[in-house]
Design a protein around this nucleic acid. Sequence first.
DNA 1: TCATTGGATGAAGGATTCTTCAGGTTTGGA
DNA 2: TCCAAACCTGAAGAATCCTTCATCCAATGA
Lengths: 212, 212
Amino acid sequence: MAADVATAFGPRKMPIQTRATVTVGAICEATIQVLLSHGADRLTTTRVAARAGVSVGTLYQYYPNKHSLLFAVFEDHMNKVSQAVEAACADACYRPMSEMIRRVVEAFVDAKMQRADISVALYKVAPDLGGPALVRRTGQRLRKAIELMLLTAPDLKLSPDRFAIDMVLSAISGAMRSALEAGASPAVFRKVRAHLVLLCQSYMAAAAAKGA
Amino acid sequence: MAADVATAFGPRKMPIQTRATVTVGAICEATIQVLLSHGADRLTTTRVAARAGVSVGTLYQYYPNKHSLLFAVFEDHMNKVSQAVEAACADACYRPMSEMIRRVVEAFVDAKMQRADISVALYKVAPDLGGPALVRRTGQRLRKAIELMLLTAPDLKLSPDRFAIDMVLSAISGAMRSALEAGASPAVFRKVRAHLVLLCQSYMAAAAAKGA
DNA sequence: TCATTGGATGAAGGATTCTTCAGGTTTGGA
DNA sequence: TCCAAACCTGAAGAATCCTTCATCCAATGA
């Protein structure tokens, strides 16, 4: 099944020479820019190529169709966020639960903010592209990492609640989404970050208490 | 400014005879159906008209362009959700804060679930259409209603925290979105509903304590 | 009954967009 | 230097799609 996805949406050819690597990078970056400046429905392969400073033909040498181009950018972003959160999980093992949560939430928020423009751009195309499906897969991946981390918490008696973790993840992404789409200022983002920590900590504590 | 929006996206003509009312209703319903079965990028005016059992020309008699059709359906849905929440706010005045929160959260969730198919369909087109803008306007509207309600809470000393309310609203919609897009079962939705109440209650309590 | 207004039709114009491919340019190793 | 492989070009084919408008049908009320 992974093979199907690869042949349908995967890149057509990998760049070998440095020149080509630069080209592919420029194409991806141009995709983001066009998405931000023109919107999803006016993103055309020609426009992306022009913005990247190459011809359309070049674009089609690396991506079999428009879909696969968008998907590649999307997948790459999700991967980076996942890696950041997983690293935070690994670092936070054996610490008190509230600090675990703080670290994970902050890692997630920071990863999204790192390239806020990409996040905003991708919100516009996620719906086409099996967006929800990839989001779900990423969610499961993050949940597993968090679950493993919580198992090492010294102050947690019961096994961690899977459902509560999903809840927290979707709440965080919801809050981040509206802040990002609203184009919030750095000051507001700091506040959102702090409050998200508070929100997750208080909910996880309440959920654990209820489960007992 | 409202006039600009009206002339650009507003319906072209209001139905007068019952026959026309039925037609317009069929067109809106068909829009949802096509969105669900074909996706946003393959939603064509011809397809919508066919599904509604009318010709394209009829569609263009009521909506000046594809955009305005989508926008009308979108706006209508947001209005219904808003009204449901506002009604809940009015009903919950002068009650303990935790019950206020429970009622509002449940009202929101129930309103979304009422026509879950519409919610899911709209996630696919919100990005085009000034989606975020309308979402923000609706958010402000809801926040005001909630703020007014909280002012009557007997067990709340400080004035309600605007930021916290926005936080709660975006967290709720995030959780609902992922549940809806995942096509969760009724049982799961009941659990989401209960946990969202818990999440909002514990966060609001924590935020109030911190603010003191 | 009959004129007037509302409502519906759907072929066709006009405009985009995706994607290909034949041929030219650049790179890197032998 | 020289060649094969990698890379790039961009005009043009093929396929959609949005929107209009001339024309016909249905309802209303005087």
